Amino acid sequence: MGVPAAPAGYKSGFVGIIGRPNVGKSTLMNQLVGQKIAITSPVSQTTRNRLRGILTTPEAQIIFVDTPGIHKPHHQLGKVLVQNARTAIQSVDVVLFVVDGSVESGGGDRYIIEILSNCKIPVILGMNKLDEQPEDSVLIDRTYEQIVNAEWPVVKFSALTGEGVEPLQQLLIEHLEVGPYYYPPDLVTDQPERFIMGELIREQILLLTREEVPHSVAIAIDIVQEEAKITRILATIHVERDSQKGILIG
């Protein structure tokens, strides 16, 4: 599949979505791209691969890198997730730092700000969960104003309802440079279909089992049969311990 030449003055670039676990990064990327490509489990640390969602508009192509939620690591997987997020920050054109705008800022936000303080690329502060903000949000806003870089633009939105997402999209485009199409204009993700199928299955496992099955669960897609009205998928679920098999089968 060839990639056509972009029109004159066209903008493009990579945007890293950074934030604490469960602030709505995957929900936001799904809202922006318009299709379900990132899993949105209420359990933290579910985004392990740096999934790229692609938004192509008449004026720009934005490639979103959805990083794992950044938190102070307590174990080896946590260290790897934080390292992945640090690497993602260094390889994008704009960082979108997403926070939960319905609650006051906390230590986790300050930890990320420390990481971003040495960042040489533009940072936008996105305050998500506008739909859950109290009417008088001045105190909440102030807690973020006190800790973030005063030069970072701030935009409020709700990834769930879509309110405020359009102005956010425009702000991201403003921060991109003129560039080519990196991907064909009709593509929404560079991850193969089988990976996305596996992620959707993994999402359901995490939703149904919560804490009983850890994030080490992995999915292998064995057979995909596409019929007129249904797609049948045969998959193998890999778990760490035999005891977890019974939980999943049950």
Rank of each mutant, 00 (worst) to 15 (best):
G2P: 13
Y10P: 10
Y10N: 11
G13W: 11
V15I: 11
R20L: 13
K25M: 10
K25I: 05
S26D: 06
V33E: 01
V33T: 02
G34I: 05
P42A: 02
V43T: 13
S44H: 14
S44K: 14
R48P: 14
N49Q: 07
I54R: 07
P58W: 02
E59C: 00
E59W: 03
A60E: 00
I62H: 00
P68A: 02
P68L: 08
G69D: 02
I70V: 15
H71F: 14
K72A: 08
H74K: 01
H74L: 05
H75Y: 02
H75Q: 00
L77V: 04
N84T: 12
R86Y: 12
Q90E: 14
V95G: 11
F97W: 10
F97L: 13
V98C: 03
D100T: 09
V103S: 06
V103D: 08
G108H: 04
D109T: 11
R110N: 13
I112R: 07
E114A: 06
V123A: 04
G126E: 11
M127Y: 08
N128P: 04
N128L: 09
E132S: 12
D136A: 06
Y144C: 07
E145K: 14
Q146P: 01
N149T: 00
E151F: 04
F157N: 10
S158G: 09
T161A: 09
Q169Y: 04
L172F: 04
L172Q: 04
E174V: 09
E174C: 03
Y181F: 14
P185E: 03
D186Y: 05
V188H: 09
Q191D: 08
P192K: 04
E193L: 13
G198V: 01
E199S: 09
L200M: 15
I201F: 01
E203Q: 13
Q204E: 14
V213K: 12
H215L: 14
I221T: 12
D222W: 13
D222P: 13
D222K: 15
D222A: 13
D242E: 15
S243H: 10
G246T: 08
I247M: 00
L248M: 08
